[in-house]
């Protein structure tokens, strides 16, 4: 029987601070099949980013994975993290559009990923960068641009292109549209949907915005205080929310009229 794309069992993660230990994730189970899109919803501080980092097998210090397993196609992510990171699982961090090196051209930064993880030669790298930028609907000429010359939304697209450089099977996107205006946000959502369709990449979308996640994902998992309080197909959960937290999140979404054309 083929292993699931992503299988998380009993994950516990914590942060060791100077005076105490904070249990950020308190035993969660998650699973994702190939090509699926799962939305992880929760408020700030619920543990969403901690889970995202755990999927990569390593938390930034002083965080540590205390218990549980994270398996990617049957392989233990914590043990084999270095081989899986970026090649099979890629992540777009929160505020990633600001994570570019300001003194290197964007093309060079994507090429760095390609040369480290794929060992491609110069010409092959250039070609691949052009392909990637086209995939995210950015002019290939922007490879010669510096990060500050592009808008936040465009930089986010380039970040996504960089994450897809090694054709990963899973893309983890942590709040990919925060601080972007609605129109740019709509563009990124459309992009994620299209990438799923065309590349078959699975997506784990992390956000506090229920409506946003609903636009892209089939399944939902609601996170509160380090625990998953509700999980299942998005349509079902939205129609019949079980947990009061889910109901509160649904109530927070504004009702706006839909205008066509």
């Amino acid at each position: 029987m083929t292993a699931r794309l992503l299988e998380v069992r009993g994950l516990r993660a914590r942060y060791r601070l100077a005076d105490r230990v904070v249990e950020a994730v308190d035993g969660i189970d998650l699973s994702l099949e190939q090509g699926e899109a799962l939305g992880l919803i929760g408020e700030s501080g619920a543990g969403k980013s901690t889970i995202a980092f755990s999927l990569m097998g390593r938390l930034p210090p002083p965080g540590e994975i205390a218990a549980g397993t994270v398996r990617f196609l049957g392989r233990d992510v914590v043990r084999e993290g270095a081989r899986l990171r970026w090649r099979e699982i890629a992540m777009v961090f929160q505020g990633a559009m600001n994570a570019f090196n300001p003194v290197l051209r964007l093309g060079a930064q994507i090429e760095e990923v390609l040369s480290v993880h794929r060992g491609l030669g110069r010409r092959a790298r250039r070609r691949r960068v052009g392909e990637l930028l086209e995939m995210v609907q950015i002019e290939p000429a922007c490879a010669r641009a510096y990060p500050h010359q592009l808008s936040g939304g465009m930089r986010q697209r380039v970040m996504i292109a960089m994450a897809l450089a090694c054709e990963p099977k899973l893309l983890v996107a942590d709040e990919p549209t925060t601080n972007l205006d609605v129109i740019t946000q709509r563009g990124i959502l459309e992009l994620l949907r299209r990438l799923r369709r065309e590349l078959g990449v699975a997506v784990l979308l992390i956000s506090h915005d229920l409506a946003l996640v609903n636009e892209v994902c089939d399944g939902l998992a609601v996170l509160a205080a380090g625990r998953i309080v509700e999980a299942g197909p998005a349509a079902e959960i939205l129609a019949r929310p079980g947990h009061p937290h889910t109901r509160a999140l649904i109530a927070a979404v504004p009702r706006l009229p839909v205008i066509h054309g």
Binding site: I183, D209, L212, N214, L256
Partner: peptide, 18 residues
Amino acid sequence: ADPRDPYTAALIDAVPRL
């Protein structure tokens, strides 16, 4: 309900909905 400017309409349409 009745935006007169196409930019306004685009803004309203861009909001993700449930």
